Computed example of a mutant assay.
Amino acid sequence: MTQEILVPRRSLLLGTAAGAAGLLLPGFASAQEFPSRPIQFICPWPAGGTADASMRAICQVASRVLKQPIAVDNRAGAAGMIGAKAIAAARPDGYTIGQIPISVTRFSQLGSLQADPRKDFTFLARTSGQTFGIAVLPESKFKSLKEMVAYAKANPGKVTYAHAGVGGATHVGMEEFAMAAGIQLNAIAYKGGSAALNDTLGGQVDMLADSSSWAPHVEAGKLRLLATWGEQRTPRFKDTPTLKELGYKVVVDAPNGIGAPAGLPADVEKKLREAFRFAVNSDEFKAVAARIDAPVMYLDGPDYKKYVGQVYERETQLIQRLKLKELLEKG
């Protein structure tokens, strides 16, 4: 009688021990268990900005798919590179992810980011781009981009423009345009787009080169938009031509993406890619993207990684052509 009772109990204990040991094996139940706790999402831009708004919207949708909260952690500074560095250095378990600006391809080569975007990140999704443009005050002597180019050709280095920092998308895009137009402009660097916008509104510079910070001011009649930089006209400002339309082979949309550290387990990567694929294509995210003039430009992780590699090569040539390292050394 006693033996009959002990045998099943002993078997039960052995089975429990084996199960516990199995749970300790690396990756044994990660596919079922991830995520089992909240996820940290590093946003490399200040709270309240357009990038922050779009990432919070996308994380809200993704959190419902993953059935875990996604906490947005703003780590602004160094043109987004402080946040990017934190993502690259995090533990590759899927619990620290974040927004990766495409400018990592440039700043890693300029020494502002101690990481190689080709091998130090796991790319999960490309999300959306930005709408860049050139804006002037309503009373500016430049009624069109054509007039500005003609004046700049006759007066090399006299036309000033404000941008958000040496080596950033607004600076590099504007210099690419100047090179294509055969003109020399006077670039004035600021510590961010808001300071550049304020000085343009105050008449201290001739033009502003920025993402859509100018949009409400254009709509209010406080600025005039000369051109946008996308592949196509932006719906909100459909009467404004693109640089490409005007004959300059320059397209700048600086798409952002979502990624994690390199070495993410394949099953965890798959879950995150699926969640953010759903989130990017949700009506909720698309509504926020439309409000901030951010065209949706979705790519799945592997395709986004290929895109990053292509951009890296283009940036190598651009850095040499524009002598960006020398400009950064001068400050």
Rank of each mutant, 00 (worst) to 15 (best):
A178K: 03
F107N: 10
L145F: 15
T96M: 10
F177Q: 01
E175R: 15
K158C: 02
A169R: 00
Q130S: 14
G157W: 11
S103M: 11
E176N: 13
H171M: 04
N186G: 00
L113K: 03
A181W: 03
V159D: 12
D116W: 07
Q109A: 06
R106D: 01
T127S: 13
P138N: 04
V104L: 05
A89G: 01
P156S: 11
V104I: 14
K119I: 12
S103D: 13
V166K: 09
V149L: 08
A89K: 13
Q184M: 12
M179W: 10
K119A: 13
L137T: 14
T105A: 13
K153T: 08
A89N: 15
A125Q: 13
N186P: 01
E175N: 14
T160W: 03
V166C: 06
D120N: 14
V166W: 09
M174C: 14
A125M: 09
S112R: 14
D116T: 08
V166A: 10
P92S: 08
S144C: 09
P92Y: 05
T127Q: 07
A164T: 12
A86P: 03
A152F: 05
A135V: 12
A187Q: 07
F107I: 05
G167K: 04
G167E: 05
F121S: 01
G168V: 04
T105R: 00
I100D: 00
F123Q: 00
V149F: 06
D116V: 06
G168Y: 13
N186F: 06
V136S: 02
A181D: 02
V136R: 09
Y95E: 05
N186L: 07
A154V: 07
F121Q: 02
K119V: 14
G182H: 05
G165V: 08
G165A: 09
G98W: 02
F121Y: 15
P101L: 04
T96H: 04
